[in-house]
Nucleic acid binder design. Sequence first.
DNA 1: CTGTTAGCGCTTTCAT
DNA 2: ATGAAAGCGCTAACAG
Lengths: 343, 343
Amino acid sequence: MKLTIYEIAEKIGVSASTVSRAINHSTRSKVSDKTLKKIDAVVQRYGFVPNQTAQNLRLSTSKTIGVLLPYHKGIFYHPYFRHIFSGTFDCLFETNYKFKTVILQHGESRWEKHDFKNGEGVDGLIISAWPSFFKSRNAFKTVNVPCVLINDYDPETPGCYVCHDDFQGGYLAASHFYARGHRRLAIMRGRSWGSISNLRVAGFLAFLKEHNLTVDEHLIVNGEFNEQDAYRVSENLLKSKDQFTGVFCCNDQMALGLIQKLKEKKISYPDDISIIGFDDITEAGALKPSLTTIRSPIYDIAREATLILITHLADNRKRKKLDGYKKFPVSLIERASVKKIIS
Amino acid sequence: MKLTIYEIAEKIGVSASTVSRAINHSTRSKVSDKTLKKIDAVVQRYGFVPNQTAQNLRLSTSKTIGVLLPYHKGIFYHPYFRHIFSGTFDCLFETNYKFKTVILQHGESRWEKHDFKNGEGVDGLIISAWPSFFKSRNAFKTVNVPCVLINDYDPETPGCYVCHDDFQGGYLAASHFYARGHRRLAIMRGRSWGSISNLRVAGFLAFLKEHNLTVDEHLIVNGEFNEQDAYRVSENLLKSKDQFTGVFCCNDQMALGLIQKLKEKKISYPDDISIIGFDDITEAGALKPSLTTIRSPIYDIAREATLILITHLADNRKRKKLDGYKKFPVSLIERASVKKIIS
DNA sequence: CTGTTAGCGCTTTCAT
DNA sequence: ATGAAAGCGCTAACAG
């Protein structure tokens, strides 16, 4: 049923290699015009397409890159990942490198089983949200294919990173608070996977320092990067409620947790307490009052990451390892959660 | 660098076949517990993962299905396709068949080059929006891998279809007009790829007929399924403006074209003319006044299509060809474009 | 310019 | 229970 180059070779009376050369437009050893024509004709007539798997095995490549995402239902409705797909595919389409893309899902167990060690058969990997799996930090190091990590910079794990600028994000948040008259601020940081939090907080504090301000130690609380935990630690923070006018939350989820607690305590935002989040998740814009937050140019990041990966892959002298740390500036989305203070 | 079963066989002093049997948990000829343990240990230690490409070649499979979409920039932001991804991936994830998915883009030239003849190396294809490429109708027939077509039923092309119910959609539109007091109606149908249009119009007329109504021949205009062409043919339709109170547009894009023309002529909707579209594209909800339209349960359709495909694929007796025509009911999204007429 | 040959890494009869 | 050998379909030296 499925044609092979041998069969088409036989029909013409040439060898399989010649057919191979013909269909690959080999430049190394040219096929004569006459045989080329004959081969083309047969290929055309039968609609022959070479078996990709065989080519792949032979050339030990797959012409495929993998986009690795955490799996959870509804991830395709999440704007963050939507931008990733879009950026990746647009890049692939426009550069014409003819790579295919498969969407892969990671989970801790899959890392542990070394499922990604050889990239699940892909030539390279674009990895997002990997730090959600702690142990993956070590497993990741055993991965054998070129990888580009997006947006979760971890200084302890060498690799090729394309990220938004977390430091600048924190800096922006602080400057926005400052411009709106806030001088006494609090911070809710994410404990796990500290580097992101560290950078965001560092940026925040850096701005304040330039303006001779600081954040008192007890106004910095640590929680996990999720709503529930933020809700929990909010209790603590709010004991010092009178000592600050605004809170910088290290991501929007945490802001959501804080807001929930505020509602419960009948504390209103931004009137009593102003808030800035990070990530611009869908809820941020939908919330009432809506949440001022920091947005990542994730589309561009994914695009760039893909470009880096595929040019590296297309570049045959693969000896050099992929690395580097490329930063993209973030922007502050001004909404309704930061009150203007007139002093 | 990359380990093969031969190397791991050598380390233990067994043959490659035994290793192969071990890692595949072969049931046909069992590996003794002792050697199994030894092999497992080595596999574990080196984090060995078998080369998928080699397996694929040997077994002539790829454990991959392709989702074929028309390529255009921003397709990932389109809700229709988002639902397709979501349905497909959720199905794959929940059924545990361990198929991978690649997103493939079609274009007329790719069909003509027989790029999909062997499915681009995938085991099966989920195809959406294929009729946008006319010639693909014939090219499609040469495809060698199992396919499931979603949502563009073409009676002339045999295959396995999972679709929303176009007929019922038209029926629903008519009944909504009727319930809101409309009795004199017009239709804007899509000329190309007629079957969809035919079904929608047939459903529409069927309802009317049951209520002893009909649509006059000159109040049915034909255009292409796009905004520009609808805009063009609207001119014609509006010459008979006084003879109808509502227009059923065979898709939302056409409704958009009509609306543009209405604006130009300072005819207001729904006051002067009511409109119902089809598809519920993003603009439908955003428009002011918003557009009443028919929505397809595309998530469920994609899910079902995927399930059909992968169970077929997993089912080794592939001799039987995939076919059938499964219909999903659509729903009317009531918005602001149909005026209530009090008679 | 073209044919011969070997082999990519794996699975699977067929022996033993 | 295990090994030897063949082969999935293709490409790339190498030789002519």
